[in-house]
Amino acid sequence: TETAWISLVTALHLVLGLNAVLGLLLLRWQF
């Protein structure tokens, strides 16, 4: 079960990281 939790947490971190990068790019394009 630990491996499943680790994979789930890493997936969440990757998604949050991608969202942060996309958000910064969108803000930079708007201004």
Score class of each variant (00 low, 15 high):
residue 19 N to P: 08
residue 11 A to H: 01
residue 13 H to P: 08
residue 2 E to P: 02
residue 22 L to W: 11
residue 8 L to C: 06
residue 19 N to E: 05
residue 28 R to K: 15
residue 25 L to T: 10
residue 11 A to E: 04
residue 1 T to S: 12
residue 26 L to P: 12
residue 24 L to S: 04
residue 5 W to E: 01
residue 28 R to Q: 02
residue 17 G to N: 02
residue 12 L to A: 00
residue 20 A to E: 07
residue 20 A to M: 12
residue 30 Q to D: 02
residue 6 I to A: 01
residue 25 L to D: 05
residue 17 G to P: 02
residue 21 V to A: 11
residue 6 I to S: 04
residue 8 L to G: 07
residue 9 V to P: 00
residue 30 Q to S: 13
residue 7 S to T: 14
residue 30 Q to I: 14
residue 10 T to H: 01
residue 4 A to F: 04
residue 15 V to R: 05
residue 3 T to V: 12
residue 15 V to M: 13
residue 22 L to Q: 05
residue 28 R to L: 10
residue 18 L to K: 02
residue 19 N to L: 02
residue 19 N to C: 02
residue 16 L to T: 06
residue 27 L to S: 01
residue 29 W to Q: 15
residue 29 W to V: 14
residue 19 N to R: 01
residue 10 T to S: 07
residue 23 G to D: 05
residue 13 H to W: 14
residue 6 I to M: 07
residue 14 L to E: 09
residue 26 L to F: 09
residue 4 A to K: 06
residue 13 H to C: 15
residue 18 L to Q: 01
residue 17 G to H: 10
residue 12 L to H: 01
residue 7 S to I: 12
residue 10 T to F: 07
residue 6 I to T: 08
residue 6 I to P: 01
residue 23 G to C: 15
residue 17 G to S: 08
residue 28 R to E: 04
residue 28 R to G: 11
residue 21 V to W: 03
residue 30 Q to G: 12
residue 6 I to D: 02
residue 12 L to K: 06
residue 17 G to V: 14
residue 30 Q to E: 06
residue 13 H to D: 08
residue 7 S to N: 06
residue 3 T to S: 10
residue 6 I to V: 11
residue 21 V to C: 09
residue 30 Q to R: 15
residue 21 V to Y: 09
residue 9 V to M: 13
residue 3 T to E: 03
residue 31 F to S: 13
residue 21 V to S: 04
residue 23 G to P: 02
residue 16 L to K: 07
residue 10 T to D: 02
residue 22 L to F: 11
residue 3 T to R: 07
residue 19 N to F: 01
residue 29 W to Y: 15
residue 28 R to P: 04
residue 20 A to S: 06
residue 22 L to A: 03
residue 30 Q to F: 07
residue 20 A to F: 12
residue 26 L to V: 13
residue 18 L to Y: 04
residue 18 L to N: 04
residue 26 L to H: 03
residue 7 S to L: 14
residue 7 S to Q: 06
residue 3 T to P: 14
residue 10 T to E: 00
residue 16 L to I: 14
residue 17 G to Q: 09
residue 8 L to M: 14
residue 24 L to K: 04
residue 17 G to A: 14
residue 27 L to E: 03
residue 31 F to V: 12
residue 11 A to I: 10
residue 27 L to D: 07
residue 9 V to R: 07
residue 30 Q to H: 14
residue 31 F to Y: 13
residue 3 T to L: 10
residue 23 G to F: 15
residue 13 H to T: 15
residue 8 L to A: 09
residue 18 L to M: 14
residue 21 V to N: 06
residue 14 L to R: 06
residue 2 E to W: 06
residue 30 Q to T: 13
residue 15 V to H: 09
residue 23 G to E: 05
residue 29 W to M: 15
residue 4 A to Y: 06
residue 29 W to F: 15
residue 14 L to V: 13
residue 18 L to W: 08
residue 23 G to T: 15
residue 29 W to N: 15
residue 2 E to C: 00
residue 19 N to V: 00
residue 24 L to M: 12
residue 27 L to N: 05
residue 26 L to Y: 11
residue 10 T to I: 12
residue 25 L to H: 11
residue 16 L to M: 12
residue 3 T to N: 06
